[in-house]
Simulated assay, not measured.
Amino acid sequence: MDKDRILAVQGEIIPDDQDPSVRRSWQVYGASKIDVGDHALVSDINAVSVAACTYHGASRKFVVEAERFYPQRDGAKGRREALTRFLTAYFPAALRAAGCAP
């Protein structure tokens, strides 16, 4: 094991009136839309998905960002495809695990 960071994933439940795109860490440059949650984007290095949910009886948004760090050996298309596959599988499970009901 080389201890290099390959993937970072963070999720957060935020107020429903907050726009996660204003937060620099969750911006996705040169992105394409993907079908994950209510709104999702993928770029060459990261992907972000947002879904409205109910958390402890209140309207909220669940937001997840996944960012890749390993070498660029698989090309932009391969990175986007891998991030899309990851977020498609991860996001619904993370939403449930966070206790945020759609």
Rank of each mutant, 00 (worst) to 15 (best):
K61F: 01
A31L: 09
V9Y: 15
Q10N: 14
P71R: 13
A82G: 10
G11K: 09
T54M: 02
S21Y: 10
V9I: 13
P71V: 14
L95F: 11
L83K: 05
R73H: 15
D17C: 03
S25M: 04
G99Y: 02
P92E: 10
S21I: 06
G75C: 07
K33R: 12
L83P: 03
D17Q: 03
A51F: 08
H39E: 14
L83T: 00
D44Y: 04
G99E: 05
S21C: 04
A89S: 15
L87G: 04
T54A: 00
D16S: 02
D35C: 06
S59E: 03
F91R: 08
A58M: 06
D19R: 01
D35I: 09
K33Q: 13
D74I: 15
F69I: 02
A8C: 10
E67S: 09
P102E: 07
G11N: 11
A66L: 09
S49V: 08
P102N: 10
A97T: 15
F62Y: 10
A97P: 13
P102Y: 12
R85F: 14
P92H: 14
A51M: 10
E67C: 08
P102D: 07
R5P: 06
M1V: 12
I14D: 00
L95G: 06
Q18N: 04
P15C: 05
V63L: 06
M1K: 13
S32F: 12
E81C: 11
N46K: 07
T88A: 10
P92T: 14
C53P: 00
F62Q: 03
S21F: 07
D38H: 03
A47T: 07
T54K: 03
V36T: 05
E65D: 09
R73K: 14
V48R: 00
L83S: 05
A94S: 12
I6C: 09
L7G: 05
S43N: 10
C53D: 05
Q18G: 01
A101W: 03
F69L: 09
V50L: 04
A98E: 09
D44P: 01
H39P: 05
R60L: 04
P20T: 02
R79S: 11
F86M: 12
P92R: 15
K33E: 14
A31W: 02
D35K: 15
D2G: 14
H56Q: 09
I6G: 07
V9F: 11
G57K: 02
V42L: 08
S25C: 03
A82S: 11
N46C: 12
Q18L: 11
R80P: 10
A66T: 06
A52H: 01
M1G: 13
A52T: 00
G30M: 10
P102L: 08
D17S: 02
S43H: 12
R73L: 15
F86T: 06
Q10A: 11
W26Q: 00
A94P: 07
R68Y: 05
A101Q: 05
G78E: 13
I45E: 06
R60I: 01
F69K: 06
W26L: 00
R5G: 10
F62A: 04
E65F: 01
S59T: 01
L87Y: 04
D2N: 14
D2R: 09
T84V: 10
